[in-house]
Design a protein around this nucleic acid. Structure first.
Length: 574
RNA sequence: GAUUCCGUAGCUCAGCUGGUAGAGCAUUUCACUUUUAAUGAAGGGGUCCUGGGUUCAAAUCCCAGCGGGAUCACCA
């Protein structure tokens, strides 16, 4: 391996070697007993000073301020930061000052994981700190962390902000950007809160297949894969709806699943190819009941996370306090555009859409035009959580026909901060109607709609056995988390958002260069000059390479005699 | 997929109408026993994303590619 290391990385490897030479294991196997955390000390020390006379804590060394015979340092554990005070003569009471002068001051680098023992005290400037009596290296770091610094006003300088690097190296992002960590903790609190709410109601958390031979339950293009033993095409699920409904047929009254779903579609700040949805199905309920439940659940989540129902999201203060505004889709359109679409036929709708500047074309049917108008003119204006109910039947092949309105289904979405966060129906349980709706989808598929649903015979067979009237819900966990954590992008609520693979640079190994007769000392020079693979080296201009090696030799003050031009030429002909 | 902006030291960034690179933090050496963006002094560190082109001369201008951001399209 010929990896080029930066000067700073070389320094760290040098320090690693110094530790080993001094008999210090840089990666010890035995556990380091920890008896408190940074957060715990900060919150309890003032009221319980004697409780922190003998503490043991571990974490990452984040800052060193060395001031002669005494030093301050910052230790960061999973709960936060705490200052360390290290006094040479307290750390090394005897004659031997190695631990302070060499180990602490030189061998330790920022980012190293250490364990310390000592007692808590308050410095003259009033900062709660640990007076260190013992210090131990637990893991040596070989790379240097970005070093954001917070000034007296709380302003952060030199923050690690490059989004690409933050997403690719999330571990670094998490170490140096505390607000990032906070958002992810809140994400888990959100799912915990939701899970707790659902369990309290007696619903059963279940798991259903991710690999499916037929994908269904939503309109989306899937990821396709192959099972070797069965020699069969499988799809990563785009939704789990049809499996959960089978369980309702099977006699469960309430089932839910936090499901990773996969959709082979565009990426944006609201879309990642894999994302999480919580789907819930409850028997003997309808969509009106489900609206009440969603309100209650989301209000509870907001208060669990923020101790109040209001959440600041960008410029908007969103209030999840019940009850939420409810509009039928037609009412919403009338409200925001002044047009009563109930009275219009397809031609009239198209005309109306054009008049208010919503682009439509001849291929769009009535439902599609309504959807366009809503998406364009209403959705972005709905900031406070709002239920939109009663959608055109054509766009909802799994929803039950509306009890009173012909051409509509019993469906609602909740729109919040201008985006859909959930989607729910009174589930279609009429097997004859369901078969017909699937067949309509097949027609769409034949006409080239890649997102049309497939006909799932087994699902039809299941509901032919009878599915109780059921209310179903799908709620986007990523989207809800974005709102609850005031995140601007889905990538900020996914630990590892999808990205193009990193370009890996091919570099030939030392052995490969040696095989060509390149002496060990000059390999670095050859690589540094850009001939990172054997192919590149063989194609090189020997005069140029010879010059470059000479330059490298001078710069790095290498004693070894420069290879002759003929020697350099010889490397290329082997 | 389209449009647009961006890519310079480990990190954050400057670098004008072309003249082969700068700052702060980090890092190295030295001083300093209660600091906290510690301080003072002195150093080191660069494939200016990659490849072409124009030019006496390219980080800078042009073209192509790679990677990323934003907006749009797609995602009922």
């Amino acid at each position: 391996m010929s990896i080029e290391l930066s000067e700073q990385e070389l320094v760290r490897r040098e320090n690693l070697k110094k530790a080993i030479d001094a008999g210090i294991n840089p990666y010890p196997a035995e556990l380091f007993e920890v008896n408190c955390s940074a957060k715990e000390i900060h919150s309890n020390y003032q009221t319980d000073k004697i409780g922190y006379k003998n503490i043991s804590i571990a974490g990452r060394l984040m800052r060193q301020r060395i001031m002669g015979k005494a030093s301050f340092a910052e230790l960061q554990d999973s709960t936060g930061k705490i200052q360390l005070y290290i006094n040479r003569d307290d750390l090394c009471p005897g004659e031997d000052k190695f631990l302070y002068n060499d180990f602490f001051k030189k061998i330790l680098d920022i980012g190293d994981i250490i364990g310390v023992k000592g007692y808590v005290f308050t410095t003259q400037v009033g900062e709660i700190s640990i007076h260190v009596t013992e210090i131990k290296l637990l893991a040596k770091t070989l790379r240097n962390l970005p070093m954001p610094v917070e000034d007296a006003e709380g302003k952060v300088h030199d923050a690690f902000t490059d989004t690409e690097q933050r997403y690719r190296q999330r571990y670094v992002d998490l170490i140096v950007n505390p607000q990032v960590k906070k958002a992810f903790i809140q994400r888990t609190q959100l799912t915990n809160s939701m899970r707790h709410f659902l369990n309290e109601k007696g619903y059963l958390e279940v798991e259903t297949p991710i690999l499916q031979s037929l994908y269904g339950g939503a309109a989306a293009r899937p990821f396709k894969t192959h099972h070797n033993t069965l020699d069969q095409t499988l799809y990563l699920r785009i939704a789990n709806e049809l499996y959960l409904k089978r369980l309702i047929v099977g006699g469960f009254d309430g089932v839910y699943e936090f499901a990773k779903d996969f959709r082979n579609e565009g990426m944006s700040r609201f879309h990642n190819p894999e994302f999480t949805q919580m789907e819930l199905y409850v028997a003997y309920k309808d969509y009106n009941w489900m609206m009440d439940m969603v309100e209650e659940m989301v209000e509870k989540i907001a208060t669990d996370l923020h101790d109040k129902t209001e959440v600041q999201v960008g410029e908007n203060l969103i209030n999840f306090e019940r009850p939420w505004k409810r509009y039928t889709m037609f009412e919403a359109i009338q409200h925001f555009t002044g047009i009563d679409i109930a009275a219009l036929d397809e031609a009239g709708l198209r005309e109306a859409a054009k008049k208010i500047g919503v682009p439509v074309d001849e291929t769009m049917g009535k439902a599609k035009i309504i959807d366009e108008i809503f998406g364009e003119k209403c959705e972005p204006k709905l900031i406070q959580p709002t239920f939109i109910t009663d959608y055109p039947v054509e766009m909802s092949p799994l929803a039950k026909k509306h009890r009173t309105h012909e051409g509509l289904v019993e469906r609602f979405e909740c729109i919040c901060n201008g985006k859909e966060i959930c989607n729910a129906y009174s589930e279609l349980n009429d097997p004859i109607d369901q078969r017909k709706r699937f067949e309509d989808q097949l027609e769409l598929g034949k006409r080239g709609d890649e997102e049309a649903m497939m006909l799932d015979e087994d699902f039809l067979r299941a509901i032919e056995y009878g599915m109780p009237p059921t209310a179903g819900l799908g709620i986007g966990i990523d989207r809800l988390t974005m709102i609850m954590t005031n995140s601007n992008s889905i990538q900020d609520v996914l630990f590892f958002p999808q990205m193009r693979p990193e370009k890996k640079e091919k570099v030939a190994s030392n052995d490969e260069y040696v095989a060509l007769g390149v002496p060990e000392v000059w390999i670095a020079a050859v690589i540094k000059s850009g001939y990172k693979t054997i192919e590149l080296l063989k194609a090189a201009n020997p005069n140029k390479l010879h010059q470059e090696i000479a330059g490298f030799r001078k710069k790095n003050k290498i004693e070894t005699a420069l290879p002759t031009l003929d020697e350099v030429k010889a490397w290329m002909v082997v």
